[in-house]
């Protein structure tokens, strides 16, 4: 239990970072009703671009912006495959993801791993700050979790505003009923591409933050991102769905879903002392359970109201 409590701040921080990725996925999966598998690749793209830019001497904020731009470009490519080439969204995402593997390696100078030395570069957050805050070497407001909370808050605020605008509302309409959207003069193809770009921009930002946090970018860092993202969305919905109806709160629920996910993973690792190589298997099982619960509930636990009516 002590090891779990020690690891908790790290797990929360990781969860918050991945939560930004999950918010990106929320835009395609929930708002546009598209399953976008680009994210497994664009997450790493974000990390790779950020690390290489910083290594090349660019300011951390410029590196983050470049990472977002690179992610948006990846989303654009998937959108192009989907809307202009008629490839089903899920396959279009897989194609981009596959292609990105080579692109990401090329960005990282053909190396599978590129380090980012915290002592040499001015990063916005690092795993090292966790301990330094704990031992009083750093002020509390430089705690990595707090930094990511700030990022998340700004992102949620911007998205809340954007999806309330004419353009944002038309993107929501595209996902809710594309036939109706076209009848109301909405260019649904353009909106899908735009949504994919925004989504992957956020995914890349999340990857960039993670690479700074852990101090390196690595070719496999995005593997399974889609699963973590879906898990966060579903856990958030199952846990807070009844409470959080407002759009901003729904985004918050996604972020909190990611945090819960990482706490659960940490709990499993600490308490069962499982070899971390089994993490992917555990992740897949956790997601499967969370996906199955609403289905089972519907199937095996009939609603009480209806029973009352029959009686």
């Amino acid at each position: 239990m002590a090891s779990f409590l020690n690891a908790l701040p790290g797990a929360v921080t990781q969860g918050l970072i991945w939560g930004i990725m999950a918010i990106g996925l929320f835009i395609t999966y929930k708002l546009l009703d598209l399953s976008d598998l680009t994210v497994d690749g664009s997450f790493c793209t974000g990390g790779a671009v950020c690390v290489m830019m910083m290594a090349a001497g660019f300011n951390v904020w410029i590196a983050l912006l470049a990472a977002v731009a690179a992610g948006m470009l990846a989303g654009l490519v998937t959108g192009f495959f989907h809307t202009k080439c008629g490839i089903p969204a899920i396959l279009a995402g897989i194609l981009t993801q596959l292609g990105l593997w080579s692109v990401n390696l090329a960005i990282m100078d053909m190396k599978a791993n590129q380090p980012l030395n915290v002592n040499k570069y001015n990063v916005v957050l690092s795993i090292r700050y966790l301990e330094e805050v704990q031992y009083g070497l750093r002020p509390i407001w430089e705690h990595p979790a707090l930094t990511v909370v700030l990022f998340t808050a700004v992102i949620i605020a911007i998205l809340y505003w954007f999806f309330g605008t004419e353009l944002g509302a038309s993107i929501r309409a595209t996902g809710a009923n594309s036939k109706m959207a076209r009848a109301q003069g909405i260019n649904t193809n353009f909106n899908k591409v735009l949504g994919l770009a925004i989504s992957n921009g956020l995914v890349a930002l999340s990857g960039a933050l993670l690479s700074q946090y852990q101090g390196f970018a690595e070719i496999n860092m995005g593997r399974g991102a889609i699963v973590i993202g879906l898990a966060s969305i579903i856990i958030g919905e199952v846990t807070f769905g009844k409470l959080f109806r407002n759009f901003g709160l729904r985004l918050l629920a996604v972020s909190l879903g990611a945090v819960i996910y990482y706490i659960v993973i940490q709990l499993v690792i600490s308490l069962l002392e499982i070899n971390t190589n089994y993490l992917k298997l555990i992740s897949a099982l956790i997601v499967a359970v969370f996906l199955a619960v609403p289905f089972w509930r519907k199937r095996y636990l009939p609603k009480k109201k209806k029973e009352g009516q029959h009686a």
């Binding site: 309330g164 605008t165 004419e166 353009l167 509302a169 038309s170 109301q184 003069g185 909405i186």
Partner: peptide, 12 residues
């Protein structure tokens, strides 16, 4: 807003 361009003005 049918037939009008949609930008970043308020949706309603």
């Amino acid at each position: 807003r049918r037939g009008k361009s949609r930008f970043l003005r308020s949706g309603i």
